[in-house]
Amino acid sequence: MVDTSVAKQLVQAIIDNLPAPVGPRRPVHTIGIGVKGEFVASNVARNYCIAEQFQGQPVPASVRFSNGLGGPDQHDGWSDVRGMATRFHISDGKGSDLIATTLGEFFVRNVDDFFKFTEIAKLAPYSRLSWWQKLCDLVKLKVPDRDPYLNETENVNAGALRYANQHRFAQLGVFQAAVIGAPVSYARASYHAVHTFWVTAPNGVRRPVRFSWQPVAGVCNTDPMAVPQDKYLFKELDERLKKWPARFMLMMTIGEAGDAIDDCTKPWPGTRLRISMGTLTLLKVSEDQEADGERISFNPNRLAPGIEPSADPILEARLGAYEASREIRGGCPFKWSKVDAG
Rank of each mutant, 00 (worst) to 15 (best):
A51D: 12
K142A: 09
Y126G: 06
D137A: 15
P72S: 09
P72I: 08
S66H: 07
P144V: 01
A100M: 08
T102P: 08
W132H: 13
F106M: 12
I99T: 02
L150W: 13
G83Y: 09
G70L: 00
I50V: 15
R82G: 00
F88Q: 05
V139T: 00
W78P: 04
P60F: 06
W131I: 09
T102Y: 03
A100G: 08
Y48K: 03
D97C: 13
I99P: 00
D76G: 10
F117S: 11
A85Q: 12
W78L: 11
A51K: 10
V156M: 08
A85P: 03
T118Y: 08
F114E: 01
V156D: 13
R128M: 05
P60G: 01
L123V: 11
V143F: 08
N157D: 15
F65V: 05
T153P: 01
D76A: 10
D145M: 14
W78E: 09
Y149T: 07
A61W: 01
L103E: 02
T118W: 09
P125I: 04
F117R: 07
A61N: 00
L135Y: 14
M84S: 05
A100L: 06
R87A: 01
A85S: 14
A160H: 13
L103I: 03
H75W: 14
D97L: 13
D80Y: 03
K142G: 06
D80N: 14
A100V: 07
C136F: 09
Q53M: 15
G77P: 06
D113V: 09
Q53H: 12
W132F: 15
L103F: 01
A85L: 14
S127H: 13
N155T: 08
V59H: 02
V139L: 09
N155Y: 05
A51P: 11
Q57N: 05
N151F: 14
E154W: 12
D113F: 10
G93N: 01
D97P: 12
S130H: 02
L69I: 11
Q74T: 12
D113R: 10
M84N: 07
T86N: 01
S130Y: 04
D145P: 13
W131C: 04
L141V: 08
R162N: 14
S91L: 06
Q166S: 12
D80R: 08
H75G: 03
F54T: 14
K140F: 10
G104K: 09
E52W: 09
Q53N: 06
Q53F: 06
V111H: 04
W132N: 10
K134L: 04
I50D: 10
V111Q: 02
S66C: 10
A121K: 02
E154S: 12
V81C: 13
A160W: 09
P148T: 04
C49V: 10
P60S: 04
Y163E: 11
P148N: 03
R109C: 10
L161H: 11
D147K: 09
T118D: 11
R109Q: 15
R64W: 04
V143I: 15
P148I: 05
E119I: 00
N47C: 04
P58V: 03
L135R: 15
L161D: 03
G70R: 00
V81D: 12
R87S: 05
V63Q: 07
